[in-house]
Amino acid sequence: MSETTDQAPAALRAGFLGGGFMAAVHSRAARAARARLVALASSTPDRGVAAAAELGIERGVADVTEVAELSDIVHVCTPNRDHAAQTIALLAAGRHVICEKPLATTVSDALAVVDAADAAGVAGAVPFVYRYHPQVRHARELVRSGVVGTVLSVEGAYLQDWLLRETDSNWRVDSAAGGASRAFADIGSHLCDLLEFVTGRRIRAVSARTRTVFPERGGQPVTTEDLVAVVAELDNGALATLLVSQMAPGRKNGLTLEVHGTERSVRFAQERPEELWIGALTGSQLVLRDPEGPGDDGLSLVPAGHPMGYQDAFTAFVADAYAGVRGAASDALPTFRDGLRAARVTAAVLESALTRAWVSIPDVDEKETQHG
């Protein structure tokens, strides 16, 4: 008589490119997902060694090649300009990849990444992590189940203040490092992804205006936008107004989404992630997170009344991505195709701001590739 044992799968070996704030967030989430944090490469070998020691990662190494050799999955947390090339190199080496957004700074490069992942047959994810707040899932379920009714309009904003002063600067301000779009590609992409995720509708066309408040920051010319205002039409005819700013005093991470339907409205505010406002003609409610509530799907890590936030959402995202590497299916995991979608929306917003005209966004078949 033979004996069988159930053994837990071996821990994934996680590698990291970049050693800044986002690498810290990613590494905490990877550790919570019980990965083995094996290697990190940064802008220089010395910086890689220092960042690895600071983040509790086994080794600081020289470059992408060394990280790929040691890892099963790699988190790309480098400046935007490097995302596509580094991700394609990792995919060619057969590694799974979680790439910070934007997936690429152009649509053509994002499409090339999707092609490369398809050719390699590996998993790729982009951290649109606000999908992983339990109250976002509650809102999505209210829309999907018909409680909200037909979506009529959406009001959304993503407001920060970390670039309020002329002396405030960062590598993202430089278009050579961050790409042609800053505020919208960085945070507006989150807002649009959240809109489409919660409503189940696609943005069909946009009319946008952008503003660059300071022509220089830190003595360097600025060509990327500080503010973006967008009117969007969804694929069912609903209208959305969206405001994105990195110069809104007092707003540290003010992501809000309010969906208005024929029966109910729902509002989520990331700075108050335990709450969901449900509006009605009579009897509006402010509902607190409940692990037994609609759409939670096990996302609540702690009982009701014990606050959860951004890092918890990020941790849930990484756990979902790692499960995807092992073959689990999820209709919530943001993949490279969602990163391509964000690149398309960003390009349309920039084109509209330049031409001062409505610009349509192609809703291409999910299997579209660069070559057909």
Rank of each mutant, 00 (worst) to 15 (best):
P303Y: 04
T315Q: 15
L301K: 12
G309N: 08
H306Q: 10
G283E: 03
S284Q: 01
L301C: 11
Q311V: 05
S284Y: 04
G295T: 07
L288I: 05
Q285N: 07
E292H: 13
V287R: 00
G298S: 01
T315L: 11
P291K: 00
G305R: 08
V318W: 01
P294V: 03
L286E: 07
H306L: 11
L299C: 11
A319T: 13
T315V: 14
T315D: 10
Y310C: 14
L286R: 10
M308V: 15
G305N: 01
G309I: 02
S284K: 01
G298Q: 11
D290N: 03
L286K: 09
R289D: 02
Y322T: 09
D290P: 07
D320M: 05
P294F: 01
G295N: 03
A321W: 11
F314D: 10
G283W: 00
Y310N: 13
P294D: 02
G298T: 04
F314Q: 15
V302Y: 15
G305D: 07
L286G: 01
V287S: 02
A321H: 15
A321S: 06
G293Q: 02
G293A: 07
E292Y: 06
A313H: 09
P307G: 14
E292W: 11
G305Q: 05
A316L: 13
D290F: 03
G305F: 10
V318R: 00
D312S: 14
A316D: 06
R289F: 01
A321R: 08
L301M: 13
G293D: 06
P291W: 00
